[in-house]
Design a protein around this nucleic acid. Sequence first.
DNA 1: CTGGTGCGC
DNA 2: GCGCACCAG
Length: 268
Amino acid sequence: MNKRKIYPILVLILVVAVYGYEHFLKTEEATIIISEGKKTKENTNEFFLPTSTTGQIVHHKGYSLSYSEPHEQAEWVAYELKKSQLSNTNFDRPYFEIDKAVKTGAADWKNYKNSGFDRGHLCPAGDRRYSKEAHDETFLTSNISPQEHNFNAGIWNNLEQKVRYWASKYDGVFVVTGGVLKGNMETIGYERVAVPNQFYKVLIDTNSGKTKMIAFLMPHENSNKPLYEFVVSVDTIETLTGIDFFPELDDALENKLEASNSYKDWSF
DNA sequence: CTGGTGCGC
DNA sequence: GCGCACCAG
């Protein structure tokens, strides 16, 4: 067979392969979204999603996220922690996997190897112990951020445990968490995963009477201070990150709750 | 609980 | 790559 005959065939194979791969990616993503079931505005998982500053929102069964490709991590991860989901089941920790649902390519876990930083969960594995599937799903690289071990196992861990306490006490809470991806940041690994200088967590409770919010902003370092010392208004975090946290909420209520840095409604 | 490294197969 | 032992805050 001469070159004139073989080139069109090679081109055809290439086109089919690329199309097939794209189709595979879209099919996989669609499956993930459909697998969450019908979403309505009454479903808090959708209702309380923040805005994305990056244009790439990914839905998993147990949480949703907005991925920032330049920083190789999520700008936020959001999920509802229901009281009924609290569990002490001990699943083995699986290996981290690159999140294939991130179209631009989620970070490789190898970036973290020997970096000196923890692979810090944003949606904690401890919040998804109600099934092995949900637990394993938190071990996607789109759900982690580089964290100092003393911070992750220290005050950040304390805050995560407090969230579980509140989920129990207030019959569930909706959680949004992430690193502040602004300013000069150290990077790790060949993909230059950014190391945030601050981390935040925003909570809303709509299940125990009147709607209430609380937000935390923590420097990326361990601390022995009490958790309430890190409470700020939601507005403060919105200004820092450019994220609008509860856009679907009634405007008057949203404005009032997000301006407050009071923690009187939350039991420490 | 939150994580890590090293070793053998 | 996977399972397992062992370590740290």
